[in-house]
Amino acid sequence: MEKIIEILNDIKPNVDYSNEKKLVDDEILDSFEVVAIIGELSEAFGIEITVDEMVPENFNSAEAMETLVKRLLEEQK
């Protein structure tokens, strides 16, 4: 989780990632930032995030991103 929040803060600082639950729905993160986050997550965790995962629910909070990363780590073992 810490790593994810570090990535998020690096890409877009000054957001309360621990509590924010609508990062995409409330347009706190735009498409360019989501793509940048995916690039960093893929590299940091060695996972492949495909276009099928591109639903707001997967990126609306740091927690949702953690769930996504964990699931993909499991699936792509």
């Binding site: 890409i11 940048a36 960093e40 590299e43």
Partner: peptide, 30 residues
């Protein structure tokens, strides 16, 4: 999204993040 998350784009992203630190390196695939 399909273009920025394609395999080619991923490769480009890995290269650009190494080559250009910071914002530009992350943005090049877009």
């Amino acid at each position: 999204f399909p273009l920025t998350l394609s395999k080619m784009s991923n490769k480009l992203g890995r290269w650009s993040r190494k080559k250009f630190k910071g914002v530009v390196g992350r943005q090049i695939p877009s």
